[in-house]
Amino acid sequence: MNQSSSPIIVHPLPFFKVLGVRVDAVQIPDVICQMEQWINEKSFGHFIAVTNTHVVTEARREPSFKQVLGSADLVVPDGMPLVWLGRLSGYSLKRRVYGPELMETFLKETGPKYRHFLYGGAPGVPERLFGIFSKRFQGIRFVGVHSPPFRPLTPKEDEEVVELINKAEPDVLWVGLGAPKQERWIYEHKERLRVPIMVGVGAAFDFLAGVKSQAPHWMKEHGLEWLWRLMSEPRRLWRRYLIYGSLFISLVILEKMRILRVDWK
């Protein structure tokens, strides 16, 4: 694989804007096709942000994080409200690009073709996920796992992580640090990592490893996953869903009524 970094981002895929944040009007098959194309191009540093209303609201609140999202090669709609807004913008989005489903589908459809590294999750979780997928998908190639501490890394530790990942030479780096931490981490490291694709998948490690229970399918497909997660972890998630969720709805209404001015750059 050559040492080239990703080219200047051009967006041939359709997209719409939500509170000034670009959201690509794609579905899981589109994302998988694009990922394989990037791997075959043998260029490094492609960044996929799996985005929901919390992430968009955070970008509206914090300009530096909006810049992080703007640097992503793909910003995919993981959250039914974003799917609904995409439909209002004229795109026939049938489903959300749900992070755990994207990860599982990519592994299932590509099998042993590519090399994978799991970064994130509590100690033991990525190892458990490695074991589950190795049994489920014959020949799957995991070349490394690492659970960083919850505190900030020292410069030496950070350099060791970069070296660990680069030595493993993965094609896809799955990052499960939670938003917005994982997006910031990818943004800060993508120029130092010799990896074609980095995907922030939030709580996917916990869900797919069976550490946390996922919402029933009907809730996920009808925009009610937030309620399931709020009931499951109220102390940790009440602010995200009750405050940020309400703020998102209010800001979108103001934007649609042309009362809220949004920087579309």
Rank of each mutant, 00 (worst) to 15 (best):
I8N: 14
F65N: 04
I28C: 06
A59G: 09
M219N: 08
S43V: 10
L19G: 00
Q27S: 14
W228M: 03
S71G: 06
A122M: 15
H54G: 01
S71K: 11
I259C: 14
V125N: 06
P170E: 02
A209P: 11
L193W: 08
E233S: 13
F47C: 06
R61H: 08
S6R: 15
S246N: 15
A168P: 07
S71D: 11
G20S: 05
L254D: 00
E36Q: 15
P123Q: 10
F15Q: 02
D263M: 05
S250H: 03
Q182F: 05
S5D: 13
R96V: 05
G210M: 10
G99D: 06
F150N: 07
H46L: 01
G245P: 07
R240Y: 14
L251N: 00
S213R: 13
A203F: 03
E221Q: 14
P29V: 08
P123I: 12
D263K: 14
P152W: 02
E62Y: 05
R141S: 03
S232E: 08
R235S: 04
Q34D: 03
L247D: 03
W226L: 03
E163W: 00
R87H: 00
G20A: 06
R136M: 10
L177T: 08
E160G: 02
W185I: 10
A49H: 01
I132S: 05
Y98E: 06
E183R: 04
P100F: 12
P180H: 12
W264N: 15
E101F: 11
W185Y: 09
A72N: 09
Y91V: 12
D78I: 11
G120Q: 11
M198T: 04
V125S: 07
G20V: 08
L208V: 01
V195H: 01
P155S: 03
E109L: 06
G245Q: 09
P155A: 00
I243Q: 14
H116S: 08
V18C: 03
R184M: 12
F15M: 02
D73W: 08
G139I: 04
R151V: 10
V50F: 10
R115F: 00
D24G: 08
S5V: 01
R115E: 00
L173W: 01
D78Q: 11
A122S: 13
A168Y: 02
L13G: 00
V18N: 00
M1F: 01
E221S: 14
F16W: 10
G120S: 10
G131S: 11
L88N: 12
R239Y: 15
M80A: 01
I32K: 07
G210C: 06
F133H: 11
P148W: 02
D24C: 13
I8K: 14
R151T: 13
V195A: 00
T57P: 05
M257F: 04
L208S: 01
S6C: 03
R258P: 01
R239S: 09
E41L: 14
S232Y: 07
L260I: 07
M35Q: 14
